[in-house]
Simulated assay, not measured.
Amino acid sequence: MSVFDDPGHFGRLWADTYDLPGGLPDPALAVEFLADLGGGGRVLELAIGTGRVALPLAARGVTVEGVEASPEMVAKLRAKPGGEDLPVAIGDMADVPVTGPYGVVYLVFNTLFNLVREQRQADCFRNVARVLAPGGAFVIETYVPDPAGIDRDEQVQMREVTEDSATIRLHRYDRAAQTFVRQTVTFDAGGVHLHPFAMRYMWPEQIDEMAGQAGFHLAERYADWDRTRFGPDSTSHISVYRLG
């Protein structure tokens, strides 16, 4: 069994540094988009993490709940203003371990791809369909894979070099499986430190097909949270799926 099959792996490894400045996008536009879509009903964030989107959305008066596999991430959320008030189920987002119904379920910042097995991605859609209210929406934000970025089996990047440490990042791709493993390696006086990460990426049309198998249809697609028109040169997408 791979460490990437453990849904809490990411949070245990990254919770302490996840909120550092410069690492995460400003949630303001996502919050605006989701608040408009919510329609006053309950909203569920899968992989709620440290509350980057959920907390400002709740501050808008939206009833937000969450699913998160990592107690370490939830502890960071709880330490923030308003974090103690959000109901969060600890569990695998692919299982959607809540009952619903929810007017909106959302999964942002490429996190669908953190499910590294195709079957688990399909499970996520099927279980969202189970908890979504009639007329509700499932919102997904991911990047659009760039074939030029995965045309080699391996890639090595120098990340940081100081007088005390050096950090490199290595990628290995499996293009047939549409997966990659990334290892961030830091060398310092304390030894060698490994931070592994993996994804199973999909193109938008593949996500649409998987959604369709769970009973969803694509209702809206934009290039960003500002509702910019999605086109062939878009590098990301915000997709809104509805049942039926």
Rank of each mutant, 00 (worst) to 15 (best):
C124H: 07
E65K: 02
L107C: 07
L115I: 01
D85Q: 12
R159I: 15
R120G: 07
R120Y: 09
P87E: 13
I90W: 05
E160M: 09
G103H: 15
I150R: 14
P147G: 00
P145N: 10
E65W: 02
E84R: 13
D146F: 08
L112G: 00
D92F: 00
T99Q: 14
Y106E: 07
L86V: 05
A133P: 13
T111M: 00
K76E: 13
D123M: 06
T162L: 02
Y102G: 04
R159Y: 11
V104R: 11
R152H: 10
M73W: 04
E68N: 04
V67A: 05
V108G: 08
Q157F: 14
L115S: 01
R152D: 09
G66Y: 01
R126E: 12
P71K: 09
P147R: 01
E118H: 13
A137V: 06
V105L: 03
E154V: 13
A79N: 00
E118A: 15
T99H: 14
V116E: 07
G149Y: 05
A94K: 07
A133W: 13
A133F: 14
A137I: 03
G135N: 10
P81Y: 06
V161W: 09
V128H: 11
G135R: 12
A129K: 00
R126F: 04
R120A: 14
V105A: 03
V156I: 14
V108T: 14
V104D: 11
R126K: 08
P101G: 12
D153H: 12
P87R: 13
G100H: 05
L107K: 03
G136C: 09
F113C: 09
Y102A: 04
V156N: 12
F138Y: 13
D151N: 09
R120T: 15
N114F: 05
D123A: 10
E72I: 02
P101C: 10
